[in-house]
Computed example of a mutant assay.
Amino acid sequence: MKSRPPAPLNALRAFETAARCLSFQEAAGQLFVTPAAVSHQVKRLEDYLGVKLFQRGHRSVELTAEGAALAASLSELFGQLDRVLDRVAAPTAVQLRVSTVESFAAKWLAPRLHRFHHQHPDIQLRIETGNERVDFVRDSIDVAIRYGPGAYTGVHTERLMDAPVFPVCAPSLANDGRRPLTSPDGLRQHTLLHDEGSTGRAGVPDWAAWLETTGAIGVDATRGPMFASMYLAQEAAVAGHGVALGVGPLVEEDLQRGRLIRPFDDSLDNAYAFWIVRRQGADTAPAVDAFCRWLWTEVSASAVASRG
């Protein structure tokens, strides 16, 4: 049987990049070559395999069935190769890439990270924010923390924290004698701050749900500005611009430091929670294990502090 000549690695890399971008021009920019060079490498790979990988249009390209199958495999293989090369090139520098939502990064993670760095000075953390589905191989993400229902397929998940919801505001707002917040009805005189994260998601409390539960009278649940994230709504509350619905773990630090207070005790359960998300079936990485153990330690410490 005649053996196949060695695979053209440059052509494979060019094809994987072009398949990910669905554009020879964008791929060229990422690879620091010309679009013609990318096209040449893709054609070289097609000749090597004897199949068409792209259907070329006037100003666009689309993957063929064979191209899509190859691209999926190459994405994972190149991701694995990049991680191996990183370990070989810098064996003493342990890097850990963590993906999480902006609100959690700013309000829960950032105030605590100095303790992780003190305990693990050999682990260099890179925190990236986003709430889209993580491709651990393609994006080289080691662990993710997500706010959601937890029904994530193809990955390993652990429930990190519940996320009860309750109103929060600046102390100056609550102590305004002209507009007392002694009962939920008093919210008629205050601006309600909303965030898109609680809009239209089953089981995630919004102002309408909270006001209905407490029996508040005459409060328009739709009144007030809408913010793109919980973090922004919470920062507006800290600044005294209105009353926000705080998500327990995210307002913990501001409550402890007196930047926010809870004007009412009423709290609603939340169908969403905070989850640790890891690759399914992946070899255990000591740095990932260390980070997850630290997360659990911090959650336990927070629980003890809140009971005290």
Rank of each mutant, 00 (worst) to 15 (best):
K107W: 11
W108L: 00
L109G: 00
P111S: 11
R112K: 04
L113K: 07
H114R: 04
R115W: 15
R115M: 06
F116H: 08
H118A: 13
Q119Y: 08
Q119D: 13
Q119I: 05
H120C: 13
P121R: 01
Q124D: 03
R126D: 13
G130T: 03
E132N: 08
R133I: 09
R133P: 01
V134C: 14
D135T: 01
F136N: 00
D139Q: 06
S140N: 12
I141F: 13
V143A: 00
A144P: 03
A144I: 07
I145L: 07
R146Y: 09
G148V: 08
P149S: 08
P149L: 12
P149T: 12
A151T: 10
H156V: 09
E158F: 02
L160Q: 06
D162A: 15
P164E: 14
P164M: 14
P164G: 13
V165S: 13
F166C: 10
C169M: 02
P171S: 11
L173F: 09
D176V: 07
G177A: 07
G177T: 01
R179E: 08
P180R: 03
L181G: 10
L181P: 00
D185K: 06
L187F: 05
R188L: 11
R188N: 07
T191S: 14
T191Q: 15
D195K: 01
D195P: 02
G197S: 06
S198K: 11
T199L: 07
T199N: 08
R201P: 02
A202E: 11
G203F: 11
